[in-house]
Computed example of a mutant assay.
Amino acid sequence: MSSPKSKTQTKSAKVISLLSRAKGATLDEICKTTEWKQHSVRAFLTGLRKKDFVLTREQRGDDATAYRITQNPSDKEPEGAA
């Protein structure tokens, strides 16, 4: 019998985790974590926006631009709810 392997986290899940931090994540941080090129990270961020994630872009003290998820699609109220 083989032992059960722990499920590895997908790159998408890692990026969402980074973006969910209070300080968010820079393009460079995401590139290092995923081994993606910057244009791929930007495309992924666009895809998140299309999936109704709300992203903010903030300037950090070290002159780096950080991106952060401020609202997940699951946080939104269903349409027609009032």
Rank of each mutant, 00 (worst) to 15 (best):
P4S: 01
K5Y: 03
S6I: 14
K7E: 11
K7D: 08
K7I: 11
T8Y: 03
T10F: 04
K11N: 13
A13C: 07
A13I: 10
A13Y: 05
K14T: 15
K14N: 12
I16Y: 01
L19I: 15
R21V: 11
R21L: 13
R21S: 12
G24Q: 04
A25W: 00
A25C: 06
T26R: 02
D28Y: 03
I30K: 01
I30Q: 00
C31H: 00
K32M: 05
K32A: 10
E35G: 03
H39S: 08
S40R: 11
S40Y: 04
V41T: 03
V41N: 00
V41M: 01
A43F: 12
F44C: 07
L45I: 04
T46W: 06
G47R: 13
L48W: 09
K50V: 03
K50M: 11
V54H: 14
V54Q: 14
L55N: 05
E58A: 09
Q59V: 13
R60G: 10
G61H: 04
D62C: 06
T65I: 11
T65Q: 02
Y67H: 12
Y67E: 03
R68A: 03
I69E: 01
Q71P: 08
N72R: 15
P73C: 02
P73G: 02
P73E: 03
S74L: 10
S74V: 05
S74G: 09
S74F: 04
E77T: 07
E79L: 15
A81E: 14
